[in-house]
Structure formats: C-alpha cells, structure tokens
Design a protein around this nucleic acid. Sequence first.
DNA 1: AATCGTGTTGCATCCTCTGCAACGCTCATT
DNA 2: AATGAGCGTTGCAGAGGATGCAACACGATT
Lengths: 259, 259
Amino acid sequence: MSQTVDRALSILPLLAEGPANLEQVSVRLGVHKSTALRLLRTLHEHGMVYRQADQRYRLGARLFALAQQAAENLDVREIAHPHLVALNEACGHTVHLAVLEESEVLYIDKVESRYPVRMYSRIGKPVAITVAAVAKLLLADLPAPERRALAEKLDYPRYTPRSTPDAAAFLAELATVRAQGWATDLGGHEESINCVGAPVRGTDGHVVAAMSLSAPNVVVTADELLTLLPLVRRTADAISREYSGTAPAPSAIDPAQEA
Amino acid sequence: MSQTVDRALSILPLLAEGPANLEQVSVRLGVHKSTALRLLRTLHEHGMVYRQADQRYRLGARLFALAQQAAENLDVREIAHPHLVALNEACGHTVHLAVLEESEVLYIDKVESRYPVRMYSRIGKPVAITVAAVAKLLLADLPAPERRALAEKLDYPRYTPRSTPDAAAFLAELATVRAQGWATDLGGHEESINCVGAPVRGTDGHVVAAMSLSAPNVVVTADELLTLLPLVRRTADAISREYSGTAPAPSAIDPAQEA
DNA sequence: AATCGTGTTGCATCCTCTGCAACGCTCATT
DNA sequence: AATGAGCGTTGCAGAGGATGCAACACGATT
C-alpha cells in the first residue's frame, strides 16, 4: 500500500539473513543507493537496524524489545503461565502454549524441564502446522470453510513416515480432534517425540490457544504419555476458566487438584 | 529522515503498549485516520501487526520471527551458549550473556537454574547500565573519550544504597574493572542480589560480550560468589578463545576443566 | 428508525521521496 | 606519494506517491 514503508520493511527480513552493506541492500531492494541509505537511516533511528563496526547493517535491539513487549501483552500467556509451570513440575515434561495468527501457529510460551534454555529459539519459529498437536487443536476450531481452505493451501512435508500426508488426512484428523476435544502428535514431527494437547477456550467457547505436553520415547512411551492426558485437559480447562473470568486467579496452583 | 517510514515505525512501540484501534493510532501519530489506515495496512502486509477479532491492532508474529533471527545471527551467542550451560550446571546460578549496542547493554542469553521460564522476559529489556556487572565490563572497554561521554550522558538511578551514584564514581569503577579484567555488582541493582562477571574478547582483544553469574544473598554470600570468579573467568576466556578461532569447538565442555 | 462511532474509499493537492550526479573518504596498488 | 577503485554521503530538481478531506458503508446502541 505504501511504497516507502513497504520498501523499508522489506529490508528487515533481508537483514535477518545476515549483515549486509548499503550496496547489497539497494540492489536487493531494486532502488538507488541513496534511497536505501535514507530508508536504513530511518530504520536506524528507530533502533530496528544496527550499524556494526564494518559499516554493515544488522537487525537491531529494538526488535527484541518490541517482540518481548508483544509477548507480554498476550494475556492468555500471562494467565496460562503459572499453570504451565505447575504442569511441568507435576510431570517433568516440556509444556508448550500456542496461538493461531494469520494462518500461522505460533508458540508463545514454553516450559522445559531439563534444559532451561533458548526459550526464544522457539518463539516465532514456524510450527509444523500439519502435525503439531497444538496446531491441530487451533485449526480444528476454525469454521469449516476456512478450515478446508487452509488445509488445501498447506504443504504436507513428510517429516517422518507418520506425518500427516495430505489435506484429506489432515481434515479427517481435525474432525477427530474437534470431536474429542484433544489432540496428539505421535512421532509425526520427530520420530521419537510424542505430544498430547488440549485447547484453551474463551468465554464463547472458541479456542483461543492450545497447550501440549511433549516427551521423547526414551523417557515415556506414547501410551504412558496418554495417561497424562486427563491432567493436561484439566490444566487447559483451568486456564480456560481463569481466562474467561469464571474462576478467580488461584493463589497456588496444583495441577493434580485441578478438577 | 523518511517521514512515511518514520510514522509507520512509530506505530510499533505504540502497539507494544497494548492493542489499539485505528482512531487511537491516528491520534497518537498526529495524522489523519486514512493515513494511519494505510500505514497499518502496509505493516499488516509485512506481518508486523496483526488485526485481532475486535478489529484492533496488535504487534504481529513476524516481529517474533525477526527478533529470533536477529538473535541467531549473533554468533557470539551461538558459541557461548554451551559454555553458559556448562557453567550453570557446575554452580547452579543464573548466567547472563550481554553485548553493547548503540549505548545500550542488551542481554542476549540467559541460563537460569531453578526457574526455567520466561527467558524472553529479559531479552531486550533495558539493562541497568550503571550497575550491572556486564555493563561495566562492556563500557570499561570503550575508548576513554567515548566512555567519558557516555558516563556523563547516563542517568544514575538509586536502585539501592549501593548503586553507582554518579558519573565520577562510575568512571572510577570502570577504570578498576578495566584494570582487573572482571567486574561485580554487589547489591547495586537489587539489594539482595550479587553478580560477578568477566569479559569475552575478540581476536583483537576488544571486549565483544560480557557474561556474569548472579545469585541472591540467601543462597550464597557475596564472598562465596566471589570464590567462583576464577571459574567465571575461565569460562569467559574459553568462549573468547573459541570465538577468536584459536580453540576448536570442544565436543564436551566441562567448566571445571577449562584452563 | 435514527444516531453515533468506526472503518473505508476516491480524489485533488501538495509534499516528500526518488534517482541522478558530484563529492569525499578510505584503502590498496603502483 | 600518487592514482584509482570502491563505497558511502549529500544537494538538487522533478515526479510520483502520500496526505487530508469529505463522503460513504456498516454495525451497534438508543
């Protein structure tokens, strides 16, 4: 819509690939050097890009700050977080929270037991939308036409032999998920990793987020993980209630007691 | 420099405060509604903002993706990470890694022992530049004129009675840090929290990053924490060597053995 | 039904962005 | 030291695009 802004914003993903100098940017944008310079300066003033010692440009720190603030403003996340922690402490496995945005599934929180690191290595990364339990939960709640349209549009990468092969299979799976109110990913993304997930619903019953528990085969079998499903569902329901305002924020959360 | 881009980028921090509708955005930008609409549309096309169900705008997913990619491009972080983890496992305390960018100190990695959560709650947040050990390390390495200019420019908030009071005290502290090659923050930011830190240096000996170990008084006293200083310095030196390419990436890292 | 609040569109005007060309700077080469 | 290449930077004039206005559309509220 706005040419100037469009060009300026196009610089960001370009720099995300790695540092670039003025000429490289101008060439890839298809504009004159001076134009690229002025755009970069404006981006620089806003802290979106950073000019390193060798004069090349990199993405800047403001980007972190913005992403962080954006994450903090997601109130589902705020509410869910203590529940996720409690669940993690109860069973020790990795817990994810995800939302749907513009046909993309996005992790917005994660609690990992053994390895407390690289939270942000996940945030923003494209989720395997055709296989992830949280993705199934979020998409299953879409209106049928949208669901179908999206399913047709997607690619179906064969991460493993158990990955969802095509749109038809995916839609069938979504129907199942929709009916049963929970979802799994049994080795569909990584051969040795299983997940079980449950939806978080808003006041009107619509799915606003989804959470899942992930564990590698070597720790628990798929069957064992499934025995945790009731706990996962109770946790998700507890979050839903608190999010909907039908339950007060509890002072202490014990997932084993969440009814 | 570029008015249009300037306005568009100004929308982002505005939305970071929380969702806003078209009118609110236009008012705060000081432009006509239609102008704001077109800017928002362009931002939307680039995934920088997201339009939620109630038509209000929020920061979008692309921002996460970009921030994440920006982080991944910081190769210091990539190299340092396993060392930070090893250090954390060795002593159990919180480990931070930070860099200096545009007169700001920015955490780019963190390993926390007890509470594996909210990594990103720190990333991008303004670091207490006048008191944090990592900030002292990074600023101490600046050329003297720059160091002085920056010190004069800063505010010196009295987080605690032990906070650095003014530019003179700060410059003195930086001189000490520069001379001894390590830094501390003993209750200067939070009364009960102490830190010790050491610099990561590039090939030319310049400080490219800084790391620190933080622990609350109730866990270890400041004196006890200081006994870990040699370990911290060895870790930082190991990172420096690997970053400079003078040491091959080790297959397994044991901080107790890092010489 | 009417009114208000909001978002959206077409259009004429003027501003701002653009590309050009010239300049300055640094670095390498002879 | 001089020359030249490579790159970033700056003034300028022209044109294209962004802007604000006003009118319209749509839904909610009374």
